[in-house]
């Protein structure tokens, strides 16, 4: 069985939870026979790579001098590593950055690539992947010959039980690439002061919220239950809610004990950010919305019709 290469995303020098879970999952796939190498763009300032359990080795690659860390560079460095290690499977988190990185790596390596993975079986020559497509309304089971690149949904694969700490090494790479993409600024205000991951009750608004005015109502509900407002990508893209409150593949992964979704359709990109919530209540006018596949309780009435009633009742019961 060939070795596995796992890419660890380290925004701001800290590994994402999804990446660390992926390393642990890779260990489960590799079993005893194969090696798991976790790679990240980083250096000695990267936060505690020793804690990325499940990898045999962690390779921290410092971007070459004069190069910003951009998708361009990362893809080339990762594919070079894959070639070096002759890794049969490259696992990358199916995040905003990861999905594109996976495609770019697959293109450079000339390897097949599979996205939105929710299940994976590894054989000697092939990998079989289950993927959620079309907004979660269809599932494809596909085979690809190794070496292959797979982008895995957060927390989708089971982690191995026995995990050991890796050996960490720093590498420098020379790269023969014109610097075509430069980082001009990192927008810190987008990160914001709110960390919805800290709240155990979230009221999440989706596209079906029915308008910016109703978001105030949603905020009222959040306040009434001592929770925070969160939003799906469609809502933050519209600028109705700060990006720091976004749940999903391109947002945050959260595990609140209570999640109330208002007008959230439950597309996989969103669901992967909240599927492990404790109690999930969803309101959406479409009875076939995928959110109802994971919700505990669901209502199909219009959100605008429900919100004023809900607020009133919550206010009454607080008295």
């Amino acid at each position: 069985m060939s070795d596995l290469l796992v890419y660890v995303e380290t925004p701001g020098g800290v590994a994402t939870a999804a990446s660390r879970d992926l390393v642990a999952a890779a260990r489960g796939l590799a079993g005893r026979g194969a090696k798991v190498v976790a790679a990240a763009i980083g250096n000695d300032k990267t936060s505690v790579p020793e804690t990325w359990l499940g990898a045999d080795e962690v390779v921290l690659v410092e971007p070459p001098a004069g190069f910003d860390e951009t998708g361009d560079v990362t893809a080339h460095l990762l594919s070079r590593l894959q070639r070096e290690l002759r890794a049969g499977l490259v696992l990358i988190p199916n995040s905003s950055v990861g999905i594109d990185l996976a495609s770019a790596v697959a293109a450079i390596c000339g390897a097949p690539m599979l996205a939105s993975c929710v299940g994976l079986t590894l054989a000697d020559e092939t990998v079989t992947v289950r993927s959620r497509l079309y907004g979660g309304r269809a599932e494809a089971i596909a085979n690809a010959p190794l070496p292959a690149v797979v982008a895995v949904n957060a927390g989708a694969l089971p982690c191995a039980v026995e995990l050991t700490a890796p050996r960490v090494s720093l590498r420098a790479f020379e790269i023969n690439l014109p610097a075509r993409i430069r980082v001009e600024a990192v927008e810190t205000d987008a990160i914001g002061d709110i960390d919805i991951g800290q709240s155990d009750r979230l009221v999440c608004v989706g596209r079906g919220i029915g308008g910016e005015a109703n978001i105030e109502f949603a905020r009222d509900v959040a306040r009434a239950i001592g929770g925070e407002l969160a939003a799906s990508r469609q809502v933050t893209d519209r600028g109705w809610v700060e990006r720091s409150r976004q749940i999903g593949k391109s947002g945050k992964t959260v595990t609140p004990r209570l999640y109330l979704g208002l007008g959230v359709s439950g597309a996989p990109e969103h669901v992967e950010g909240m599927r492990n919530a404790g109690l999930i209540i969803a309101v959406n006018t479409d009875p076939s919305a995928p959110i109802f596949d994971i919700a505990h309780y669901g209502a199909t009435c219009a959100v605008e019709a429900l919100l004023p009633s809900l607020i009133r009742r919550l206010a009454e019961s607080r008295q």
Binding site: P11, T16, V97, R182, V183, A185, E187, A190, S250
Partner: peptide
Amino acid sequence: QGAGRVVVL
């Protein structure tokens, strides 16, 4: 770039 992080390139 996800999780609230926006980069100007």
